[in-house]
C-alpha cells in the first residue's frame, strides 16, 4: 500500500505536468481561423474548455498507462501479477465523477446554444439559395439579387437558407456557425459580423461533382458602404 501511495504521488505530479504540456502543444498546433463574428466568442471559449479537458484526460490515462508499463513490466520471470479482481469504490468513483463533468459540459452548451439561436428583433434578413454549385443571395429589404454575399458589419444577420436541388451547407470558417440548406424547407443561421473584410463561404455538405469548388465571396463592409452598395444594386436592377 505504501508503495502504491508513492506510485500515485509520482503519477499525480507527472499528470499535472503532462496536462499543461499537452494543452500547450494543442493550443499552438491547432490553427483556428481568425474569429470574425460575435458568436465566435462563446464558441471559442467552449472549444478552449474542451482542449483543457482533453489535455487532462489524455494525461491521466497516458501517464498511468506508461507508468504502469514501465514499473510493472515483466522482468523475465514467469510469475503472475497480484491477484486483484477489482475495486468497487474506484469503479463507482470513475463512473459518478464523469457524470458530473458530462452534465456540466452539456449544461453550459445548452445555455450557450439557446443564446446563439435566440431571434433578435433587429436582425437583418438575407435569403440564400444553394444550387449545384453556386449560391444565390436575395435581400428582401431591397430586392437585390447577387452571387456573392455582402453584409453590414456589427448588424445581427439571419440567413434564411434553402436549396434548389440537393443538400448544401452554409459555412464560413471565420464565422464558426454552420447550417445545412435543404430543398423544400427554410433553415436559419444567425451571426453578427464584427470584422470588416473578405471571407469565403464554403459548401460543407457533399453536393455532387463540384462540391469542393462551391465557394462564394463574403464581404463584410461598413454600414455606410453597405447602404451605398444596396442603392447601387437597386439602381442596376431598375435599368
Amino acid at each position: 500500500m505504501a508503495k502504491n501511495r508513492r506510485h500515485f504521488g509520482i503519477a499525480t505530479v507527472l499528470i499535472v505536468i503532462c496536462t499543461f504540456v499537452v494543452y500547450w502543444v494543442l493550443d499552438s498546433v491547432l490553427l483556428k481561423p481568425a474569429a470574425a463574428v460575435l458568436e465566435a466568442g462563446p464558441i471559442d471559449y467552449l472549444f478552449d474548455l474542451h482542449i483543457w479537458l482533453i489535455a487532462f484526460l489524455f494525461a491521466l490515462v497516458a501517464v498511468f498507462m506508461c507508468y504502469a508499463l514501465i514499473v510493472f513490466r515483466s522482468r523475465g520471470d514467469e510469475g503472475d501479477g497480484e491477484h486483484i479482481h477489482g475495486n468497487g469504490t474506484l469503479e463507482i468513483i470513475w463512473t459518478v465523477v464523469p457524470c458530473f463533468v458530462v452534465v456540466y459540459f452539456a449544461w453550459i452548451s445548452t445555455t450557450m446554444l439557446i443564446d446563439l439561436s435566440r431571434p433578435n428583433p433587429d436582425e437583418y434578413v438575407v435569403n440564400a439559395e444553394g444550387r449545384q454549385w453556386s449560391w444565390l443571395f436575395t435581400y428582401p429589404e431591397s430586392g437585390a439579387v447577387t452571387a456573392d454575399l455582402v453584409l453590414p458589419v456589427n448588424t445581427p444577420i439571419r440567413m434564411d437558407l434553402t436549396s434548389d436541388d440537393v443538400l448544401h451547407n452554409f459555412w464560413v470558417p471565420e464565422f464558426r456557425v454552420k447550417q445545412d440548406s435543404v430543398p423544400g424547407m427554410v433553415t436559419h443561421v444567425r451571426f453578427t459580423p464584427t470584422v470588416i473584410g473578405e471571407y469565403v463561404l464554403r459548401c460543407a455538405e457533399l453536393c455532387g461533382t463540384n462540391h469542393s469548388g462551391m465557394l462564394a465571396t463574403v464581404r463584410v463592409v461598413s454600414e455606410e458602404d453597405f447602404q451605398l452598395w444596396q442603392s447601387e444594386q437597386l439602381a442596376q436592377a431598375q435599368e
Binding site: F72, W94, V102
Partner: peptide
C-alpha cells in the same frame, strides 16, 4: 447532445478498468 455525452461514461469505465488491469501486473 446529453445522450451523446453519456456515452463517455461507460467508455471511461473501460479505460480506467484497463489501467487497473495493468497496474500491479507483470506485463
Amino acid at each position: 447532445m446529453y445522450a451523446t455525452l453519456l456515452v463517455a461514461i461507460p467508455t471511461g469505465v473501460k479505460f480506467f478498468s484497463w489501467l487497473g488491469t495493468i497496474w500491479g501486473g507483470k506485463v
